[in-house]
């Protein structure tokens, strides 16, 4: 008995060491499947607050470049506005007022403006921390979009913060298509450059070329159709040779993120329920 006690006194730290390592590994492995683990991420209350303050400070220093970008965006938008106005006038004068459809766009999607308060680029799995949470109507599996294009998908939410899977995450998979045709594939990221991602499963008979624009397909109901994702950068064959593997230059620069919109599809539940039901039919 005394020997045992002596042993425990002398080598008990081994047991503590093993216990702590087991705890760490449990966190490591359960994070992916365990939704309650949001407390162990930057979306918890303390980390969220600290990142909010830090994001406010750094966005102050970014104001100059943001201004610059906004001015540029303004110029392009004005030019586009002018072109559209002219086109509209031409159409109206050609066919008369009545022909313009009253509902050009179905209003299925609503948006929530958010700030990105933390993000990373160089890990194998990168996440974005956003400053709105369940209290503001954010729920998992909503899309996150920035001024330039798609950023990611909401993964976990706490009361006032949300953690989103960035496009730069091995778990990210977004259904995308070409802007000018309906051939689609899945956008994945396998590490490496934070400016590029891969578009997989594009069929062999799809027609496209370098520089073509990739947009969201709208199939998954997370994103509406036609949101900018990026442009085709280079073309290769997939490993099995059955489809194309495209390197996509991402439209979003993940190194400088600030303002974003969370997109919530008001009919997502309905579509999801229908799809699950269809899968259950034998």
């Amino acid at each position: 008995m005394r020997n045992l006690l002596n042993f425990l006194l002398n080598y008990g730290y081994w047991i503590l060491f093993l216990l702590l390592e087991v705890a760490s590994f449990m966190l490591l492995f359960r994070f992916n499947s365990y939704q309650g683990s949001v407390g162990f991420t930057s979306a918890n209350w303390i980390a969220g607050h600290i990142y909010t303050v830090s994001a406010e400070v750094s966005s102050f220093f970014k104001l100059r470049s943001v201004n610059h970008r906004l001015t540029q965006e303004n110029v392009t938008l004005q030019a586009e506005n002018k072109a559209l106005r002219e086109a509209l006038q031409r159409t109206v004068s050609e066919v008369g007022d009545k022909a313009i459809a009253p509902d050009l766009q179905k209003d299925d999607y609503s948006t929530i403006p958010v700030h990105v308060i933390n993000n990373s680029l160089h890990l194998p799995d990168n996440y974005l921390t956003l400053d709105k949470g369940a209290a503001d109507g954010v729920a998992p599996e909503m899309g996150v979009v920035g001024g330039n294009g798609v950023m990611g998908i909401v993964y976990m939410v706490s009361e006032h913060y949300a953690l989103a899977i960035s496009l730069l995450n091995s778990k990210s998979s977004i259904s995308c298509k070409f802007k000018h045709s309906d051939y689609f594939g899945y956008l994945k990221w396998k590490g490496g450059s934070p400016r590029h991602a891969l578009l997989e499963d594009v069929p062999r008979h799809a027609l496209f070329q370098k520089g073509d624009t990739i947009v969201t397909s709208g199939y998954s109901a997370v994103f509406p159709q036609g949101l900018m994702v990026g442009t085709v950068d280079s073309i290769a064959d997939s490993n099995d040779g059955l489809s194309y593997l495209l390197r996509v230059q991402l439209a979003t620069d993940f190194a400088c993120l600030d303002n974003a919109l969370i997109i919530s599809n008001d009919h997502r539940e309905e579509q999801h329920a229908l799809e699950t039901k269809a899968q259950q039919v034998p």
Partner: peptide, 24 residues
Amino acid sequence: LLLWGFSLGLAVDVFSNTPGVNAA
């Protein structure tokens, strides 16, 4: 020493969204 190490790693993990990595 072990407890300080674990909590230090865990705190860094919470901020960098890598649960368990720095703690271990």
